[in-house]
């Protein structure tokens, strides 16, 4: 588990992180969200010991973060580069050895990952002969080669084609299954919805919201329900109006879609009981906000506060 307590970081006159508390549970897929310039990268750089915080502490498995236990962290930065003139194999081994792996061990791991990505013949290729997507695979291997307990991925899918995205996604899920804690920093809400169990949203150096994805959605839901039926839509609308309000009602391909705002779940139950057998209901669901909506709303609210 990584616990960041009361982290404060200032650059010249700008406060990048203002008393931030974030807990990343072991084994989770954790989403670190926020608009550009929110302080995500600064936070990650503190976790990876690139920056030292001006205030606060970082604990990793209950011990203060130091040079040795920082090796438990693997890091794939957003802006990433490689030595262009080195060969793939050489570069991977160099980075692995810097992280304390013995050459034999590093070679074993490298061959394992070459196998996983089916790139066994890449070892002697020069980095500058690889395409961007190919280079990103190499960067990913460098980040995970020393089998870190925690893997921090800053916008891991930016610039990747769907095939490479899928390949990397699969590996991330595989690592998660084997117990690696994954920290995603992203503003791609699709990947958050798909992967993350817990999220924290940072804006202007402060935590705006945090919790499991479900908790966050529940906290931001607006009690919107969607009804789809084939007949007697007027009856449905009237019944809804008794307990709440009809937000919209429209007909498409012979199916009526009615969006209703009902204050409590029991009111929704009441509507369902009353219309049962009368409107030919085809579907009913509670509409939870998307992470994208929550992101936009939270950032806007934060701006209005300031």
């Amino acid at each position: 588990m990584i616990v960041a307590e009361d982290i404060y970081k200032k650059f010249n006159d700008t406060v990048a992180l203002n008393r931030v508390n974030i807990t990343i549970p072991t084994g989770s897929i954790f989403g670190l969200l926020g608009p550009n310039g929110a302080g995500k990268t600064t936070f990650i750089r503190i976790l990876t010991r690139i920056y030292l915080p001006d205030g606060g502490t970082v604990l990793i498995n209950d011990n203060p973060l130091n040079e040795l236990n920082a090796r438990k962290i693997g890091y794939l930065p957003e802006e990433r580069g490689l030595y262009k003139k080195m060969k793939v194999g050489e570069l991977i081994l160099y980075m692995a050895r810097l992280r304390g792996l013995k050459t034999v061990e590093a070679k074993e791991q490298m061959n394992y990952w070459f196998g996983r990505f089916d790139i066994r013949d890449w070892s002697d290729k020069r980095i500058d002969s690889l395409s961007k997507g190919m280079q990103q695979k190499v960067q990913f291997i460098i980040a995970v080669l020393h089998r870190p307990e925690f893997l921090i991925l800053d916008e891991p899918f930016s610039g990747l084609d769907p095939l490479n995205t899928e390949a990397i996604e699969n590996e991330i899920l595989e690592l998660h299954k084997s117990g690696t804690t994954i920290v995603f920093s992203t503003h791609n809400m699709d990947s958050v919805e798909r992967f993350c169990e817990r999220v924290v949203l940072i804006d202007k150096g402060q935590v705006v919201l945090s919790g499991t994805v479900d908790e966050v959605k529940q906290a931001h839901k607006q009690s919107l329900y969607e009804f789809k039926c084939r007949e007697h839509v007027d009856f449905l609308n009237e019944r809804i109006a008794k307990s709440g309000t009809v937000v919209s009602s429209e007909l498409k391909s012979g199916v009526y879609t009615v969006l209703a705002k009902l204050n409590t779940e029991s009111e929704a139950d009441g509507v369902l009981i009353d219309i049962a057998g009368k409107v030919k209901l085809t579907s009913f669901c509670e509409l939870l906000p998307s992470m994208n909506d929550i992101f936009i709303e939270s950032v806007k609210n934060k701006n209005e506060e300031l």
Partner: peptide, 10 residues
Amino acid sequence: NRIAEVIITT
């Protein structure tokens, strides 16, 4: 080329 960022983590 930003490789420094990965190197200085270790």
